[in-house]
Design a protein around this nucleic acid. Sequence first.
DNA 1: TAATTCGTTGTACACTCGTACCACTAACCT
DNA 2: AGGTTAGTGGTACGAGTGTACAACGAATTA
Lengths: 193, 193
Amino acid sequence: MAAGRPIDHRRRAELLDAVVDYTVEYGFSEVSWRPLAAGLGVSPNTLVHRFGSKEQMLEAVLGRLRERILTDTDDLLGERPGLAAAARAAWNRTSAPQRAAEFGLFFAVYGRALQAPEQFGAFLDRVVADWLRSLVDAQGPDVDPATATRRATLVIATLRGLLLDLLATGDRERVQDAAEAFLASLPGQDRPA
Amino acid sequence: MAAGRPIDHRRRAELLDAVVDYTVEYGFSEVSWRPLAAGLGVSPNTLVHRFGSKEQMLEAVLGRLRERILTDTDDLLGERPGLAAAARAAWNRTSAPQRAAEFGLFFAVYGRALQAPEQFGAFLDRVVADWLRSLVDAQGPDVDPATATRRATLVIATLRGLLLDLLATGDRERVQDAAEAFLASLPGQDRPA
DNA sequence: TAATTCGTTGTACACTCGTACCACTAACCT
DNA sequence: AGGTTAGTGGTACGAGTGTACAACGAATTA
């Protein structure tokens, strides 16, 4: 037996990130091998060989997108004490203008997953649970679990709803005003950003 | 000059509704002439002749979907006095299990529109404004406009976020619990449903 | 009756899609 | 050197796409 050429993990990550960037920019529902490969400057077969099939590529894209969003927020939430601070940090991150396109992809996947649950079941399983756990933890062990879950659910829903509004209308003034009012209503907030 | 055969408005509405039903059931991003026509029991050319092009058909579907959602809520909101009652009525309607698929389509279009604003600009323009106007009006003329807008924005965001959660997780108990807490926090609410 | 428009269908064309197959180079181990 | 796997690319095939064109009966008015 002789082992073959080692896997170039750097190249794989670079390729996957490039695919995610392309998907963020050009949309999720229209991605196809040839235009994607042309945009990345590679051959379509390179992508096919790398990801196996289109469905597998989309799975990889979703996994990487989840990584991007979570690594920017999860550790952040873990450090902050209190629900209000965590919620404010999450809102500041997710509503940043330079992330608009990324969350456009997020909601595009979300909507599509709702109409194809069998294909995107993994996404749907995590899309709420990830944040729910973080936001429940952020409230500390002293809060009644039912209350903590209720508050975390509300924070997730409100922030995502506000983000949907912001992305659709671009009316940052109105949405930010509503966000401030919501964040100020949370228990244990100290001071605005 | 001789006028031709009159337009069969009944047939047209029936056809459009059938297309919307199909789209609700089988998804928005995969609709194509032939399977759609087969599902409706007609020829593909019937649909092409009726709608002109696929893009025009999608526009018509979005318009009809908006009609369905608004006629179930807008007149409803107009009758009720007070923000709390209007919000509760809206939540009861939108979270009903038999509407899950319809709002699955709603969010699928929403997400896709965020990634293709030039194509779905009309949708994005109305998706918040429609409800915003209704919910501001529901608060009566005595509320400060800035406050009314802030509250309406928050109600829309929270209800849509909760609906997203409900559709993704199916965890009605947790989501309904959070919804009750939110609705109870609104000014002027009288009694739960 | 003649003219005109609507509703419906069949056929065909150019195009894109995902993917399988083959070939070649590069990098590693025995 | 020989064997094995990764990375990349070229070609081709079958299927499905949107849509244009032509045709025919039905329903209306001049």
